[in-house]
């Protein structure tokens, strides 16, 4: 009902192309993100340039990779699960590689990741993975948890990253940075579909 009222108000305000989603979020059986509207956006200042953004995104991807690595070692008596998280480790590595390639094709130069990582270590307060969760906390959390819970955490974290990248692509002023966020969000989408199908296999 609220979305119908909203659509009516928007149409009455002169907008032409307005749709209300039938059934609202209750009808939505796709991925959902969590957190406040500005969650995570403080990491990326909208004015930041392409190099800064790639560096920061790369740091977050690295955090995710370290987390998946730890999860894969944690489930070392479960071959299938271990393989699953090893796959995620390589997916994150691939993502980092894509970031590097994106950066190179946009700027024609190679970023100095070590320098960038040092630059962001203060604002991130240690190693943080996608979705802004400290890696240490996440690793402590999975101890004693099952496979599907760990996959759910991975999905929640990736969806939040996806949400963040979409929003950042809208608010970022720098043209190159905008392109980077668009690419990142498209890649996250692929990533998430795979994660979701892995979870489907296990539940």
């Amino acid at each position: 009902m609220r979305s119908r009222s909203a659509a009516t108000l928007l149409l009455g305000s002169g907008l032409k192309d307005v749709y209300s989603m039938e059934g609202g979020l209750r009808a939505w059986n796709g991925m959902v993100a969590h957190g406040q509207p500005e969650a995570g956006m403080a990491y990326f200042s909208p004015a930041a340039d392409g190099e800064d953004i790639v560096g920061l995104a790369w740091s977050l991807e690295e955090g995710s990779r370290l987390f998946y690595q730890a999860v894969s070692e944690h489930f070392n008596d479960d071959k299938e699960t271990q393989q699953m998280f090893s796959w995620l480790v390589s997916a994150e590595k691939n993502h980092e590689k894509h970031l590097l390639e994106t950066y190179e094709s946009l700027t024609g130069t190679q970023p100095d990741f070590e320098k960038l990582r040092a630059k962001f270590s203060d604002s991130l307060n240690g190693t943080v993975m996608e979705g802004g969760i400290p890696v240490k906390e996440a690793i402590a959390w999975i101890k004693g948890k099952g496979v599907s819970e760990s996959l759910e955490l991975a999905i929640a974290m990736e969806v939040n990253a996806y949400d963040l990248y979409i929003k950042m692509s809208r608010v970022t002023e720098d043209k190159q940075a905008k392109q980077i966020f668009e690419k990142l969000s498209a890649e996250e989408q692929v990533h998430l579909e795979k994660l979701a199908s892995l979870l489907d296999d296990r539940i």
């Binding site: 979020l25 796709g30 991925m31 959902v32 969806v159 692509s169 905008k178 966020f181 668009e182």
Partner: peptide, 25 residues
């Protein structure tokens, strides 16, 4: 592309915080 549409969540902030469609304002 995220830049090609407006996706607006008109619910309350608490509902948004609990769950929202990725990229929704």
């Amino acid at each position: 592309l995220p830049d090609a549409y407006n996706l607006v969540d008109v619910r309350q902030p608490r509902e948004y915080e609990r769950d929202h469609i990725p990229g929704a304002n």
